[in-house]
C-alpha cells in the first residue's frame, strides 16, 4: 500500500513538473466552477440591486420611464423635512422594537427556565411553545385579527374582564400592543430554544456547590446562571431587534398599518412608497436609510458578541 502510494506520488510529481501551467489553469477553472455559481446568483440578486438602489436614491425614478433624472439629495431632504408619514413609521417601529424585544425575551427566557426543570411534560410543552414560530407571519396576523375582533369579544362576554372588551385593533394604543402580543407569541418559543441550549451548558456542579453554600434560587439565577449565559442574551436580543425592526408580514395582515397609519412599520412605508405610489426614487432613498440603521444594529451586535467571546 505504502509503496503504491509512493510511486503514485512520484508520478504525480513528474506530471506536475511537466505541465505545471496547465495545472494552474485547471485549478483556477475548478475554483470558478465551485465558487462561481454561488457568487453569480448572489451578485446579480443582491449586490447589483443594492448599488442600483444607492444610485436611484439620488434620482426621481418612477419605475416606468427608462430615464431617471438626477436630483441630488432632494429625496433625502424631502424625507427629513416633508414626510411626517415616514418619520411616524420610524417612531412606531422603534417604539415597537423596544416593547417587542423586552417582552419576547422575558417570556422566552422564562419558558426556558421553566422547561429546564425536570418536568414530565417537558418535550410536549417545548413543542407547543414552538409551534407558532413555524407559521408564517402573514397567516399569523390573519389568525390574530380574528382573535382580537371576535375571540376577545366572546371571552369578554363570558368573563366580564375589561381587558377583553377593549377595541383592540380599532384604537391606536391597543393596536400597537396587539402587534406586540402577536410578535411575542410567534418569537418567544424561538428565543426559548436558544435559551434552553445555553442553560443546558451551565455546569450543574457549580450550582450544587453554591446551593450547599446556602445561595437562594434568586442568587443562583442572578449571580451565576445569567452571567454564564450572557452570550445567549446577546444573540437573542439582537435577533429580536433585527426581526422587530424589519416587521412586515404580521403588521400588514393584522392592522395593515391602521388605524390612521398609526401602526405602519418602516418596511410597509417603503413598500407603499415604491409599489403603490410608484415613487421609486423616494422609496429607494428610504430603503437606504433603513439599511443604514439595520447595519448599525448588526455591527454593534457582532462587536458585542466578539467582545464577549474574548472575555469567556
Amino acid at each position: 500500500m505504502n509503496t503504491q502510494l509512493e510511486t503514485k506520488s512520484q508520478t504525480n510529481k513528474a506530471i506536475k513538473s511537466v505541465s505545471k501551467r496547465n495545472k494552474t489553469i485547471k485549478n483556477i477553472l475548478t475554483y470558478a466552477a465551485f465558487v462561481g455559481p454561488a457568487l453569480l446568483f448572489f451578485i446579480v440578486i443582491q449586490i447589483i440591486p443594492f448599488f442600483m438602489g444607492v444610485y436611484y436614491s439620488f434620482t426621481s425614478w418612477n419605475g416606468v420611464s427608462s430615464t431617471a433624472e438626477w436630483v441630488g439629495l432632494a429625496n433625502y431632504i424631502k424625507i427629513f423635512k416633508n414626510d411626517p408619514g415616514f418619520v411616524n413609521s420610524f417612531l412606531f417601529t422603534t417604539k415597537f422594537m423596544f416593547a417587542a424585544v423586552i417582552i419576547s425575551n422575558f417570556i422566552g427566557f422564562g419558558l426556558a427556565l421553566l422547561l429546564n426543570a425536570a418536568l414530565k411534560s417537558r418535550n410536549l410543552l417545548r413543542t407547543v411553545f414552538f409551534i407558532p414560530n413555524v407559521i408564517g407571519g402573514l397567516l399569523l396576523g390573519f389568525i390574530w385579527q380574528f382573535i382580537f375582533v371576535k375571540g376577545f369579544a366572546s371571552i369578554g362576554k363570558m368573563t366580564d374582564l375589561a381587558f377583553f372588551k377593549l377595541p383592540w385593533l380599532g384604537d391606536e394604543n391597543t393596536a400597537f400592543w396587539g402587534i406586540v402580543i402577536v410578535f411575542a407569541w410567534q418569537i418567544s418559543g424561538y428565543m426559548m430554544v436558544i435559551y434552553i441550549a445555553a442553560l443546558q451548558g451551565v455546569d450543574q456542579n457549580l450550582l450544587e456547590a453554591a446551593k450547599i453554600d446556602g445561595a437562594s434560587n434568586w442568587t443562583l439565577l442572578t449571580k451565576i446562571i445569567i452571567p454564564l449565559i450572557l452570550p445567549a442574551f446577546t444573540i437573542c436580543i439582537f435577533l429580536t431587534i433585527s426581526m422587530a425592526f424589519k416587521i412586515f408580514d404580521i403588521n400588514i395582515s393584522l392592522t395593515n398599518g391602521g388605524p390612521f397609519n398609526s401602526t405602519q412599520s418602516v418596511a410597509i412605508n417603503i413598500y407603499q412608497e415604491a409599489f403603490q405610489y410608484n415613487r421609486y426614487g423616494l422609496g429607494t432613498a428610504k430603503s437606504i436609510l433603513f439599511f443604514i440603521v439595520v447595519a448599525i444594529f448588526t455591527t454593534v451586535q457582532v462587536l458585542a458578541t466578539k467582545k464577549r467571546e474574548v472575555e469567556a
Binding site: 449586490i47 443594492f50 442600483m52 448588526t298
Partner: peptide
C-alpha cells in the same frame, strides 16, 4: 475576501434590495 463578502451582505435588509431587483 469572497467569504467576508458573502457574510457582510447579511446586513442588507430585503427592503433595500427589492425595488431595483424588480427592475433587474
Amino acid at each position: 475576501i469572497i467569504f467576508i463578502f458573502f457574510i457582510a451582505a447579511m446586513v442588507i435588509p430585503f427592503q433595500t434590495v427589492m425595488i431595483p431587483l424588480m427592475k433587474i
